[in-house]
Design a protein around this nucleic acid. Structure first.
Ligand SMILES: Nc1ncnc2c1ncn2[C@H]1C[C@H](O)[C@@H](COP(=O)(O)OP(=O)(O)OP(=O)(O)O)O1
Ligand SMILES: Nc1ncnc2c1ncn2[C@H]1C[C@H](O)[C@@H](COP(=O)(O)OP(=O)(O)OP(=O)(O)O)O1
Ligand SMILES: [Mg+2]
Ligand SMILES: [Mg+2]
Lengths: 467, 467
DNA sequence: TACCAAAGC
DNA sequence: TACTGCTTTGGTA
DNA sequence: TGCCACAAC
DNA sequence: TACTGTTGTGGCA
């Protein structure tokens, strides 16, 4: 940090954290690293074996599938997951992205090791009452079970792709993806080859050389989204969860119409299709947690209903891999794997050790997952509830500070425009830089409790000086 | 980093590691942290219990004794170690130093947890042949045992203090320490109160209010050191390990004079005392590792001889706490404790798990420790072997960059003088800054394989620009 | 409050 | 050759 | 090579 | 109120 930077930081930036130099030292050494020294008392220690030939670990290979992989259980394709991951790995070899994936994999492995260590210690201190404690909590959670409502999750099939297909019906049945350079989704035909959301086009082409890619058309999706939601609303209160999915509370509809949930949802899906030309899939159960998982089961253009009984709920979720649950991603899955859990049912099997680990894991949430419990509150968020607006752009790596500054300013302008249009204002401005090794640093500043930021000038004034 | 820094860095400094910005993002948020949000699917999860009342951990309390504590088994004082640590803890409460100790303690605990986790995993994969493998290596190491030499470690008693006492005999029997503000050593009388090396004076006074502190007089110690070593040389080749301790190979002396090692060492110690007025303690065994530990046993002014048999060597070291071994400090001790080892004998008991952990621990070195093996090579380092020179100074924390720069330059001058006097030159210059929270950052630079640094100008030119 | 990791679409 | 852009949550200091 | 943690006196 | 100064080793990226 230069002198001028330092002084600015001192007068204003809180991120210095009152850490001041209190000593300095110089060392002048023959070399940065001294080789082959006789290590005093270690003289008799033989040299450690050198590292083995590098072979990608199983967990790293799983990472290759991208974030969406493992969640949506794709099947019926030309290749197995292993073959797909192998191709992706070969195609990624030597890239900085892969290096970053390796780093993350190592970090996660380290977390797993640490957690297992804590478990080992806790097991020694176990008092023998863990099962009783866990069971007591299970009983307490069971008390809260509410089977009275019909909660549906509706999720559009290959949403962006379907929207484009509406515009251009000749796309039907062809392999294509949406997004320039990076796929946001892939048509079901493309998925058979292994193409997925969040996959770069150049890799998708390794899997499916004839894949076509379409540019993003955001207006298309918001329009379709509104069309879908306005139909859903006829069946009960809804809570949109993203552009292409929403929860609906269809309890009253079923009661009023005297139809089963299955029938009600079938009607709703049919109406969506007839009105918009889009197919949606749905999951139905007494709560959002289960419905979310259920919606994936008969995708695309299907539905799955879980009977509103405690038994059906538990039976449904018991054998599901933990990764299927909303909130359990790659890392949490590996952590739980490390403790010996693979499926939701294992939560019960290992409730003792989970109880011991309750300070390090969301214990009660896991138990309620096992019981098939979940929230059934379906409330539409108000527009004013939105917490933040952001804008981001990736560019060719640059080490030219001026060029960087220009980029930063351009993004700020774009955000400012967005914010102005929505009449939003905030108190904390955050600037984030992604480096070409995919590491990110963020710098944030809150000028004051009552100081609201809206304009481009404000953003740059407060944000850009953070570096 | 400012524009000017960045450009300089690009042209010269390797520490940028080719990490260039590749994306920027802005986020404008309502607040830095949003409170009491309803967490989608986690809604039914109750809030975690808040942290317990803060009470210092056992390991943190052990830290209070300072680095020397636990190594040198002080005993016969007025207070127990626990009482001493309690007083030191109270005296340190609220200080940044203590915060740093807490941080380090936490880091170490995390390491322990991680290691235990790895162990747990390895235990699952255990193939059952670990004992055989370990025993094979033990046998192989046993082959290397060499009992033929008489290796002595001589270590002066309360060295700096003793030097001062020679100058001022009235200090004899009184409680005093050496060092302004920070004690480098304490007289044996002061040690009875708990005063130790590396203890700040203000804490020493809590333990021993009448302690006197003397300023450092480096010439005194180097002179005394030379005097001692020149006597040791009469008894065989020596290898100084610090100002106040040296290894001596007395094999030939014993053979030529026809005396036992005990008698030879007694003579040597007597001669040192008669000539210099300083008492030294000594350990004798077939290797440096054992002699080092042995020298502490009958301190002060005593000696301990280990018979040159495999049995005696093993019996001697078996029940010693691991911490007594050279190379096992606070962290390594805790790591080994975490694996269930406390004494050197436990290395054998747990050789199977140590074998499993051989990639994460110095396995063979630990085994040879258990066997009581060690190097017996006693070679005096040549003057030209020295690898680095350094200088460091602690000052009142400052956030004034100019003041800091001045300090940095002053230290560089002091180092340059030292280096000039010794006609040393090096290729890597390192600048280190200690902050008031005791965190350190270091920046190093090697201008080139054939570029040698000696002058103040070189140091500042290459070093100061590192920040 | 600030920073980062994880998770979702 | 090449790996997005958006929002939210939770842990930690 | 550069950076940090650990260890020792 | 307050917690050094010097040298060396070893792991990791
Ligand atoms: N990683 C991503 N980056 C950007 N946009 C994404 C990403 N994942 C999904 N989207 C967009 C495009 C998707 O069509 C839309 C809905 O996502 P999602 O429901 O998960 O998949 P999908 O609707 O395309 O297929 P399906 O639901 O049939 O599995 O959100
Ligand atoms: N942490 C330290 N910082 C600075 N100087 C130290 C430190 N520890 C020791 N010294 C100096 C002062 C000591 O007198 C000298 C020799 O150290 P050492 O042999 O460990 O203790 P000692 O000789 O003072 O007592 P004894 O050997 O009797 O236990 O080195
Ligand atoms: Mg969808
Ligand atoms: Mg000594």
């Amino acid at each position: 940090m230069s002198a001028s930077d330092a002084s600015r930081a001192r007068t204003r930036s809180p991120r210095v954290k009152s850490r001041s130099p209190s000593a300095t030292a110089w060392t002048l050494g023959r070399a940065a690293k001294t080789t082959a020294t006789t290590a005093h008392h270690h003289e008799s220690v033989p040299i450690r074996e050198s590292k083995r030939f590098e072979v990608p670990s199983e967990t790293l290979m799983k990472r290759m599938g991208g974030p969406s992989d493992g969640k949506a259980g794709l099947s019926g394709g030309f290749r197995t997951e292993e073959e797909i991951n192998q191709i992706l790995y070969e195609g990624s070899k030597g890239s900085k992205f892969l290096e970053d994936q390796k780093r993350r994999d190592k970090d996660t492995q380290a977390k797993v090791d640490k957690l297992r260590g804590i478990l080992a210690k806790k097991l020694l201190e176990a008092r023998g009452n863990e099962e009783a404690c866990a069971d007591a909590i299970l009983a307490q959670l069971e008390e809260t079970r509410d089977l009275s409502r019909v909660i549906t999750l509706v999720d559009a099939d290959a949403f962006y792709a379907a929207c484009h297909q509406l515009e251009d019906p000749s796309l039907a049945g062809t392999a294509f993806g949406v997004g320039g350079g990076m796929l946001t989704t892939a048509s079901y035909e493309a998925r058979r080859y292994g193409c997925r959301s969040a996959m770069p086009l150049f890799l998708a082409k390794l899997l499916c050389p004839h894949i076509k890619s379409l540019s993003l058309k955001p207006e298309l999706y918001t329009r379709a989204s509104k069309a879908i939601f306005s139909i859903l609303e006829k069946y009960g209160p809804i809570a949109p969860a993203s552009l292409d999915e929403a929860y609906a509370d269809m309890t009253d509809y079923c009661a009023n119409e005297g139809v089963t949930p299955a029938e009600a949802v079938a009607r709703m899906r049919a109406e969506v299709y007839e009105t918009t030309g889009l197919t949606v899939s749905a999951g139905v159960s007494p709560n959002k947690t289960l419905s979310k998982i259920a919606a994936d089961i008969n995708k695309p253009n299907g539905q799955f209903v879980i009977d509103p009984t405690a038994e059906a709920c538990q039976a449904f979720i018991r054998d599901k891999p933990l990764r299927k649950c909303y909130g359990i991603g790659r890392v949490t899955e590996m952590l739980l794997n490390g403790l010996g859990l693979k499926t939701v049912g294992d939560i019960y099997k290992h409730r003792c050790r989970l109880y011991l680990m309750r300070d390090h894991l969301p214990f009660r949430w896991l138990l309620s997952l096992y019981l098939g419990l979940g929230s059934n509150s379906v409330k539409r968020a108000k527009r004013g509830d939105r917490k933040s607006y952001g804008a981001e752009k990736t560019f060719h790596p640059t080490s030219d500070r001026t060029e960087l500054d220009n980029m930063i300013k351009r993004i700020a302008k774009s955000l400012a425009k967005d914010v102005a249009r929505s009449e939003f204002s905030g108190r904390t401005i955050t600037l984030s830089i992604k480096h070409d090794n995919f590491q990110r640093v963020t710098r944030a500043h809150t000028p004051g409790r009552n100081i609201w930021i809206h304009s481009y000038q404000d953003m740059v004034k407060y944000g850009l000086e953070l570096l």
